[in-house]
Design a binder for these strands. Structure first.
Length: 354
DNA sequence: AAGTCGGGGTC
DNA sequence: GACCCAGACTT
């Protein structure tokens, strides 16, 4: 059985037209959608579930209503608007991408795959999404959903990038990627939507799937055996000790290193160690404080590590100069406008989520 | 090809 | 607990 590409593409488009979700960034037909909503939603949706983006998207859009607004914004403003979404590098890349679009392409999306792929933060998937959704160009947009759908269609345990691209191009009738073709954006969006709603990782709803007659995994009986991602690595542990120091001018904060976890975000002064917990002795030699009082202890999980926080309150030593650059005091009002990680928001603002 | 980079919802 | 998520970038 070689599933007929035209049959599959037609079934996908019909199903999408009838059953697609009404999402805020789907503000115009796939294929002729304005750039900014597509750009913003695609960056936010990288490794991030729709439910979370639904909360952040309108907030960000209210803060930066147009591409030009975003392009001329400040770094910390953009990062702060990204609060809670994680993978903060995306915010910096989105910002750089907006500036590049304004400077190189007059704020529009060039109908040119090579030029789009050259934009900051735009990889193979995002380039395909932008080109197909904005200009109806027949370029594959292979995300984790589409890879799973294609793997199951062909009953492949897994698919290399090359194999997935070949399968996707076939669905686009091997049309040249630099010439618009009606229905290209709709096809890509339908493939993604099918993976998100029907052909799900753990419990696919084959009985409701528009492709069940063409799907080799469905015919094989257990679709979950196909298109599984590689197993993930175990988490490592990191010990963190954070000191909250208050004065009349607010609370003492510092920027994190430019590289690594939460790069460049603000925090109360924090020491970290991969091996053993931070001793109060080490804290005292790193900061001119006296009388450290433990006030909180909690674990924070990210995908790749467990962070064990110990939080202290401290008073400064007499005549000690604490706010030495880049450390500085910040009022609560200021804190609310700065980019701060979730665990530090809990420490500094008493919040567990944005 | 493998490692890094958040955060929280779901099962 | 483990799994999952409209990936991109660096090494």
């Amino acid at each position: 059985m070689n599933p007929d590409p035209r049959t599959i593409a037609d079934a996908l488009r019909r199903w999408f037209a009838a059953d697609a979700r009404d999402l805020p960034w789907r503000c115009a037909p796939a294929g002729s959608r304005p750039l900014y909503p597509v750009l913003l939603s695609e960056f936010m949706l990288q490794q991030t579930q729709v439910a979370r983006v639904l909360i952040a998207y309108p907030r960000f859009l209210a803060r930066f209503p147009t591409l030009a607004d975003l392009a001329r914004a400040g770094d910390d403003e953009v990062l702060a608007a990204w609060t809670g979404l994680g993978y903060y590098r995306r915010a910096r890349l989105l910002h750089a991408c907006a500036r590049a679009l304004v400077e190189r392409h007059d704020g529009t999306l060039p109908p040119d795959p090579a030029a789009v792929r050259a934009l900051p933060g735009v990889g193979a998937y995002t380039a395909g999404a932008l080109l197909s959704l904005c200009h109806d160009l027949p370029v594959p947009a292979i995300d984790t959903n589409v890879r799973r759908v294609l793997s199951r269609l062909h009953a492949a345990a897994s698919m290399s990038t090359t194999q997935a691209e070949h399968a996707a191009r076939t669905l686009h009738a091997d049309a040249p990627p630099d010439t618009p073709r009606a229905g290209s954006g709709l096809l890509n969006e339908a493939l993604i939507e099918l993976g998100a709603l029907i052909c799900t990782p753990r419990s696919p709803a084959c009985e409701r799937c528009c492709l069940r007659a063409s799907c080799r995994a469905c015919a094989a009986g257990d679709p979950t055996a196909f298109g599984r991602p590689a197993p993930s690595r175990p988490r490592t542990t990191m010990h963190c000790a954070t000191v909250v120091i208050r004065s009349r001018r607010g609370v003492l904060i510092e920027p994190r290193p430019r590289q690594g976890l939460w790069a460049g975000l603000w925090q109360a002064p924090t020491l970290e160690d991969r091996g053993r917990p931070i001793t109060t002795h080490r804290l005292r030699s790193a900061l001119p404080v006296q009388s450290l009082h433990p006030v909180d202890a909690f674990e924070f999980q990210t995908t790749h590590r467990t962070l064990r926080f110990r939080v202290y309150e401290a008073s400064p030593r007499p005549h000690a100069r604490l706010a030495v650059a880049p450390r500085r005091w910040a009022s609560r009002r200021e804190l609310e406008r700065l980019p701060i990680s979730s665990p530090q928001r809990r420490i500094l603002l008493g919040l567990s989520s944005p």
